[in-house]
Nucleic acid binder design. Structure first.
Lengths: 226, 226
DNA sequence: AGCATTTCTGCACTGAGTATACTTTTACTC
DNA sequence: GAGTAAAAGTATACTCAGTGCAGAAATGCT
């Protein structure tokens, strides 16, 4: 606290070679999270109290809340990275590539690789987690908050890297996020209903192409010419 | 309205000549809601406990929860109608009109009439309510749930009245809802920041036109040709 | 008026999250 | 390597949202 100059140094050192304190924190964090996921998967999110999670992780309830601000965070913190994923994809795209193209290609790669975030993954573990989330309203609500965060981040990326005007960037962002989310949701629901990922792949890819074409070329006339 | 006599009659009778029990229920419902809004506006949503609302409404806490399933519902039940508003607009559109056109015209009318739902209303009461909602995360989260409901209803309306295929209907619905919501949000935030509605009207209308054009004709290339 | 049904109430409870005051652990300095 | 400040963890007790239950009151029907 004395030398204000060393403050930065301390943090850098902490990150490059984590001290005992830091390592312990990470272990505790993981222990709590693991205990929570295990219990939630076994008994259901609403059927397990945070007190029980704390007990299983051999930590006081107060400490648990020092690591995770809410019960929902015990689950969704694992998805935190994905909140800025679309923004990252747009920023890191090949020069000259259109942002929408970059996002489409990224999503298609996700499908091909059965990335859980694309919804097209039927590994039992992933499936159980998906079902658990879809079954708990508070977790679903929390996912919506994620969407909002993703929208904000993507809008900023569009403004900064494509020079898209403020309003257009916001509008494009909400549309892109909404569409991609709808695609993932659809896949996830199908997996939860027992459809195998490999059997669904072709359809999922076709749907994605269709969805992105709609984004690019617009809804046009929704009523078929009579 | 039409005369759907037999089965419907019972409900119609109940509504046309409400008995004492029914009238009392409505009065209690209103009393609780009014007390809640008044207290929330004065002290803030999070600063007022449901127990205090129940006390002000001269009702037991248990009864309060019989009328409103959650604390948030004390506020958002007033918006319940708007959840299906877009779906209604699509269903009730002039024959031959494109759904998207109907929605655009409806939104523009909302702006012109300073409909609170369009965000373009700076009446002190509306403004205070808006600020209160925007200031309480749990209420904002609840509004997101509304969006989800609106999406579902709109998708169904598109499928049923425009023959839009399942997936396209869902995708169109999420895009339309997301865009309209973004427009409303933007207006509401400007009002909350003190911008007068009349001064904002022209800009809001232009933004809406731009947004719906984007919806209709697509995002195309977001990067300006270099 | 008498009786069944609905509604309301009081009370005690669970469970999430917070405040406080305290102990332990870690990191750093001399 | 002992001393010490800061960080992390704990125990306890609290607030508040929401529920379960058993009984009291109001209402509608005959």
């Amino acid at each position: 606290m004395l030398s204000g100059e060393s403050t930065v140094t301390v943090e850098i050192v902490d990150e490059s070679k984590p001290g005992l304190r830091e390592r312990k924190k990470q272990r505790t964090h993981a222990a709590i999270s693991d205990a929570a996921i295990a219990l939630f998967l076994e008994h259901g999110f609403n059927q397990v109290s945070v007190a029980r999670v704390a007990e299983a992780a051999e930590v006081s309830k107060r400490t648990l809340f020092a690591y995770f601000p809410t019960k929902e965070d015990l689950v969704v913190h694992r998805l935190a990275d994905h909140e800025t994923e679309l923004a990252r994809v747009v920023r890191d795209r090949e020069p000259g590539t259109d942002p929408l193209t970059a996002v489409r290609e990224h999503f298609l790669v996700g499908l091909r690789e059965r990335d859980p975030i694309s919804g097209l993954n039927d590994h039992p573990q992933v499936l159980r987690l998906t079902r658990m989330i879809l079954d708990s309203p508070s977790l679903v609500a929390r996912m919506e908050a994620f969407k909002a965060g993703a929208e904000r981040a993507l809008a900023e990326a569009l403004r900064e890297t494509a020079g898209t005007p403020e309003l257009t960037a916001r509008l494009a962002a909400v549309q892109i996020v909404a569409v991609q989310w709808a695609l993932s949701q659809d896949n996830a629901h199908r997996m939860a209903d027992g459809e195998p990922a490999d059997a669904r792949y072709a359809g999922a890819a076709a749907d994605a192409e269709h969805a992105f074409a709609l984004l690019e070329r617009g809804l046009g006339r929704l009523t078929p010419p009579q």
